[in-house]
C-alpha cells in the first residue's frame, strides 16, 4: 500500500525505516568515557548515549539505547556513525549544521558527513517531530560537555 503514504517517503526513507528497526550502534558501550541521557518529557522519548574517546580525545565510538520513534532511533544511529573520529568542537559544529538542516530542510554547506545525515532532512516538514531527530544529539553534546542530562524541550 505504498501509494497511501507515498508523500511520507520523504520523511520515512528506507534508510530511516531500516535504521529505526535495526540500529547498528544501538547498544551500551562496555567501556566508555562519557555518558548522558536525553529526555523529551512532552512525548516520552528517552535516549542514553555512551562515548569512548581515542588517545587524541576524538570520538572513538558511540553507542546508545533509545526508547522512541523511528526518527529518533535512526537519528541516533546515523549520529553515532558520523561523529566517529571527530573532536568535541567538530561534533558541536556538525550538530549545528544538522539542526539547521532538520529545521529548514536545506543543507547549504553539505559535506560528506552531512550527506550521511541528509535522509533526516525530511523532518523539517513536521515541526512536532524535529525534536525527535535532535534529542540524541542533545544527549551526545551533554555527554561531551560532562553534563548528565539533556532535554530537547
Amino acid at each position: 500500500m505504498a501509494d497511501t503514504f507515498d508523500d511520507l517517503r520523504d520523511l520515512y526513507q528506507e534508510v530511516i525505516l531500516d535504521r529505526g528497526r535495526h540500529p547498528r550502534h544501538g547498544q551500551r558501550l562496555e567501556t566508555f568515557d562519557a555518558t548522558a541521557k536525553g529526555d523529551n518529557p512532552m512525548c516520552g522519548d528517552r535516549v542514553q548515549v555512551w562515548v569512548a574517546f581515542a588517545p587524541d580525545s576524538t570520538i572513538a565510538e558511540t553507542g546508545f539505547e533509545a526508547r522512541g520513534c523511528a526518527i529518533s532511533v535512526a537519528s541516533a544511529d546515523l549520529m553515532a556513525e558520523t561523529v566517529q573520529g571527530r573532536s568535541k568542537a567538530d561534533t558541536a559544529a556538525l550538530f549545528a549544521s544538522f539542526r539547521d538542516m532538520v529545521r529548514t530542510g536545506v543543507c547549504p554547506a553539505c559535506d560528506t558527513a552531512m550527506e550521511q545525515l541528509a535522509p533526516l532532512s525530511g523532518v523539517h516538514e513536521y515541526p512536532s517531530r524535529v525534536k525527535c531527530a535532535t534529542l540524541p544529539w542533545h544527549a551526545l553534546i551533554a555527554a561531551l560537555d560532562g553534563t548528565k542530562e539533556a532535554s530537547s524541550e
Partner: peptide, 14 residues
C-alpha cells in the same frame, strides 16, 4: 511494529 509518534504522523498524513 511502530512507535506511537510514527503512527500519529502517518495518520496525520491521511
Amino acid at each position: 511494529k511502530a512507535h506511537a509518534h510514527d503512527v500519529a504522523t502517518l495518520l496525520d498524513r491521511q
